[in-house]
Amino acid sequence: MSSILLSLFGAASQGLTWAILALGVYITFRILDIPDMSCEGSFALGGSISSFIMVSLNWNPFITLLIATFFGMIAGLVTGFLHTKLKIPAILAGILTMVGLYSINLRIMGQANTALLGKDTIITFVQNLLPSAEMLGIKNSVLQTTATILVGLIFTGIVISFLYWFFGTEVGCCIRATGNNPAMVRAQGVNTDKMKIFGLILGNALVALSGALVTQNQGYADVGMGIGAIVIALASIVIGEVIFSRAKNFAHKLIAIVLGSIIYRLIIALVLQMGLDANDLKLLTACVVALALSIPVLKKTTAYIMISITLKKIANAIQIKFTVKRGRK
């Protein structure tokens, strides 16, 4: 039993570090309405840069996060340039950046993966600030997970506050409106190309930051770590949106995505515990996202309407029974 709890605890900590990826994708996919594939490349870029600088240059793990974020911005700038100035369709522009980044990431690391063996990461840094595991009477792995959760909370907190502020500013409002109705935004005197580039820069910066955090958490960077990142991010977004559909306020929506990311990791941990082959995970995720994204269409089918009507009738019947019972008392 305790092993299940432990794995769920670990899943929650993972969910927090991956949540920033989901927030980055939310900016491009939902706010800008651009399916930005370059995030798969910039996620691994964040990991590669962070691990390279830590292992080869021995720099402080905090600083590597900032540098990774900066290079993520450049990746976003490249995609934005390809899309807006060179008029390449958004999805293709993203794929071009993603493919290019694969080689760049290999160049940065000089190999397919880099381990952070014996290096101080941001997780161990926080862990050292906490009292030791023996003093608390817990396992060392639990302490490490706790440290990861703390780091995750701090970073998602900072990112959410930043995004909440930024999308309330004049530029932020213009970016949101660009995703909504670019013709109107141009009529109000705003360069929509610039707004798209800003959005892509911001989105990819967060994705790279997330890649660096995930690398420091798992202890290695891999050139293939970004594969499927966009699908994982979308899964977190749709899970958050479906479960917390009442969230109307922008900050609440962002928090819903973070919770969605955690729930996604919990689901994964559960199905793995139940004996699912880890190799089938991506297929499962893809199916979940495809299903969730098709909800608007499915809602219009007769089968869905019949089921929802029956469910409502059952719910009503139960409610009537309940009130009748209470009335008798």
Partner: peptide, 14 residues
């Protein structure tokens, strides 16, 4: 958005 037509948009409140 319309009120700021023709102005430079910065990081002030929307």
């Amino acid at each position: 958005l319309a009120y700021r037509r023709g102005k430079k948009r910065g990081l002030g409140w929307g």
